[in-house]
Design a protein around this nucleic acid. Sequence first.
DNA 1: TTGTATGCGTTATCAG
DNA 2: CTGATAACGCATACAA
Lengths: 337, 337
Amino acid sequence: MVEKTKPATLGDVARLAGVSIATASKALNGRAQVRESTREKVMRSAEALSFVPNPLARGLLSGTTGTVGLLTSDLEGRFSIPIMMGAEDAFGAGSTSVFLCDARGDAIREQHQVRALLSRHVDGLIVVGARPDPRPSLAGDINVPVVYAYAPSEDPDDSSVTSDNVQGGRLAAEHLLSTGRRSIGIVTGDRGYGAAHDRLAGALTALHDAGVEPVQDALFGSWSEGWGRGAARVLLEARPDLDGLICGSDQIARGAMDALRELGREIPDDVAVIGHDNWEVLAMNARPPLSTIDMNLQELGRRAAGMLFDAIGGSPTHGVEKLPCRLMVRGSTTPTS
Amino acid sequence: MVEKTKPATLGDVARLAGVSIATASKALNGRAQVRESTREKVMRSAEALSFVPNPLARGLLSGTTGTVGLLTSDLEGRFSIPIMMGAEDAFGAGSTSVFLCDARGDAIREQHQVRALLSRHVDGLIVVGARPDPRPSLAGDINVPVVYAYAPSEDPDDSSVTSDNVQGGRLAAEHLLSTGRRSIGIVTGDRGYGAAHDRLAGALTALHDAGVEPVQDALFGSWSEGWGRGAARVLLEARPDLDGLICGSDQIARGAMDALRELGREIPDDVAVIGHDNWEVLAMNARPPLSTIDMNLQELGRRAAGMLFDAIGGSPTHGVEKLPCRLMVRGSTTPTS
DNA sequence: TTGTATGCGTTATCAG
DNA sequence: CTGATAACGCATACAA
């Protein structure tokens, strides 16, 4: 049987130290009006009883709980996880705890979760989207700060942070250009995703700035290996001189690499391939390992936490902050990297 | 600007209903000693003010908070996520909220998180491991129920739930046998993982029961595509008659399939391949889609939540409960599935 | 059937 | 410098 060790209360500490509850409270909270010797006595007692202030009682009084809600619209989504990790990390370093909720992509469910969170008197809310397109702002009856991560809010007055897909696309193109490629194709994913267009725009800008045009119009499809395979075949048939391929995701890149290899092309000697996302299980196991664009999602989560923290502290930000991506150079773009 | 709508208190409800606080409390909590007409009056007032009882105040009285801690030893790990989803789902359906903590595989950090959780007076704790090998029990000064998920506790008196890897291995072998394969090879992952040995044991049992022996001793290596490729080549060279391959993970299976195809083998006609984990992004995008063993991780999370719930209710379980795996049949073992 | 009083653990305000 | 005391919002034993 487990010992039912009731946690010590402030009263216990005060009694052990031989002072009043009020004095004990002041001593532990670093209030000025208390003699140094008394403070130490109290500190020692607290230590001896391994006293921890009850956050419920504290919250009841102060109105703040030291908790925040982390509301993901889709936990399955591969992108939510690193963001959550970053946020949890940033908060855990301080002393705020994180309530996890998964709305499973359902707006009704989301409303329900928000209500539950608010009823627990969270000090703030981070809403993590499954895809980087703008999403509706949470309805107005929320009286705590909210930060939208990955999927920005449609309301420009809200506080959002997301990945800079334009810059990411530019990064990819510039890297291929820097390795001397000039016959560059672009295969990306679902036309319905803003990210697909943003990454493309960034790539096109970079190519244009270098006086290069893509071998043909970018191919839209889906975010899958299968599409990557098919698109690569089509592209190579039309343009056998292809020497560089920008893919809208690592999955697409994996598929494209398989197809290219089967068509007798060496990577990266004949064709350099770059992906997007740095999904490690895919990128690291590719042959050769896949160069790609990393969105720094964990950092994004940390940033969201920071913004929420500031907002709770009374300094909210407004609008969408875009975090830059980072180039990961591996074997698919540079020989014997 | 957001309206600072202070949430209504029980006092507000009582005043609006024209009764005392005590009566309002009884009415809302379904206590018997209150006239029906009064109860309805109170209910309506509560509705009108959209009153929600303050969980802090309630927790201060009752000692329970309606919260649990979800402590993952490694959020990166692909296996933690579905388990968390299941647990969050099961709790969210009721009215308990989940505190998320990530120990990042660090024991010190874990202790720290446990302390933080306990100081918040969680009613219970779920500890999710990164790999299915037994892990040390949390030190004894915990006065709330704990359930270990995926990685069981070393202490048989603790309450644990994990995946039945032996049964999973058996399932894989039985499936290959059922498709008529008789020259079966086995490639698995890191020798240091109990799961590798358990899955192997299950497969060997099934083969033995069918009067079949594997073409050669199982190959241990790592849980990667690269190892899958290498092992498949070695195996095929030694036993060109291979017609079935059991892989310890989907990553290994993906690698093996690539190698087999490059050596001119058709899948599944020449060689049937089965994996383990049902890691969808890998399994569904394989050519052909990969048959595999699903560990029902989400169900495992739900079960952990259920066990914790029971333990909190005073009916703890002891020992390790093993949840059966499920066979996912796809194209890599059956033509035109 | 209803209301009054008390306490949960803390912090803040005021007197001593 | 220290100590009573009143909140915070709610639930319960007890009195009316």
